[in-house]
Computed example of a mutant assay.
Amino acid sequence: MSILWEGVMPAVTTKFTETDELDLKTFKLNINAQLEAGVHGIVLGGTLGEASTLTDEEKRILTRTTVEFVNGRVPVLINIAEQSTKGAIEAARKAKEDGASGLMVLPPMRYKSGDRETIEYFKAVANSTTLPIMVYNNPVDYKIEVTLDMFETLLNACPNIQAVKESTRDISNVTRIKNRFGDRLKILTGVDTLALESLLMGADGWVAGLVCAFPAETVAIYELQKAGRIKEAIEIYRWFLPLLELDINPKLVQNIKLAEVYTGLGTENVRPPRLPLHGKEREEVIRIIEEGIKNRPILPNYKELATV
């Protein structure tokens, strides 16, 4: 499946049972809600998906399960976050074997690679596969920035590097990328609290977090702004912002899983060493979630806009 690299692509949470096994029943419940809301792709095994705690076999199970369940309705991407080039190439091979439509690829984990090392890493992974690739550029959390000059080298060498998950937190970077590369490098914003701003500045899509609990509202914002109904998109986005801020937090996994509980789309089960929220921290997150649900907006028929 080719990927258009546009629209809302949930970075879905990984669901666990009380005994710390994959909870595929609840996982499918959430994926179905995403599809019903009109998302444009699914991203598995990212930060929000607790990637660093998943075994290789669990990642493969999630990929195969999602590919089978989605059944071609939207592309399925698996995140690659490995410590070595060898490991990343092997992960890309397995992703294709398991039916993934594309890859989201992080720079090397743990080792802070230099610019030349980072370029060679991405080139090696890209040249090892025919799957289309979205580079995840998040220097705030992962301490390695893929600069525009580095992207220039990568795009010239690797036709299957097609998109960037833009998480630099610098809104003007959307314009810089568009000025430099046009549509050769598609932009999906990766920061929930800058999502609408990024889309209005020309980003093509949104790899979203709170969409896991609020899929319809997330897709509505995207479709409304795309249709030029900016005022309506802004109104929903202003309501959404306190919830979106739960994503830019070290406890984003616990926060969003708690929100999924309140919207009937998940459980609080996380994989240790993570633990569910407790005490005043939990009380504050619940307050934000309950306030959001209490004032949840009535959405226009945004799905019709996708067919216009």
Rank of each mutant, 00 (worst) to 15 (best):
K294M: 11
R287S: 14
N137E: 12
L199F: 13
P242T: 05
E90V: 07
E291R: 10
G38I: 02
L29G: 01
T14M: 10
E284M: 14
K251G: 01
I78M: 09
P242K: 08
P272S: 08
E217G: 05
I236W: 00
W5N: 01
E58M: 06
T85L: 09
K231G: 01
V219F: 06
V76Y: 08
A91I: 00
Q225L: 03
I144P: 00
K303C: 02
T193I: 13
L299I: 00
E284W: 05
A51C: 07
F69R: 02
L103R: 01
W206L: 12
A92Q: 08
L22C: 05
T14V: 14
E145V: 05
T19H: 15
G190N: 05
M201I: 02
T263G: 09
E260I: 12
T17S: 00
F69G: 01
M134W: 13
E232P: 09
L155R: 06
N249T: 11
E6V: 04
A100D: 06
G45K: 00
E90Y: 05
A233M: 13
S2P: 15
G266F: 10
V39W: 02
L188M: 15
F240R: 05
P75H: 11
Q34V: 05
L48C: 12
G292F: 11
R93P: 01
Q225A: 10
R73P: 03
I171Q: 08
R274N: 15
R184W: 09
P297D: 03
L62S: 09
V253Q: 00
I144M: 14
G46W: 03
G205K: 12
I187N: 04
A213T: 07
Q162H: 07
G49M: 02
G202K: 08
T53D: 10
A81Q: 02
R274Y: 13
H40V: 00
G202W: 08
V191E: 02
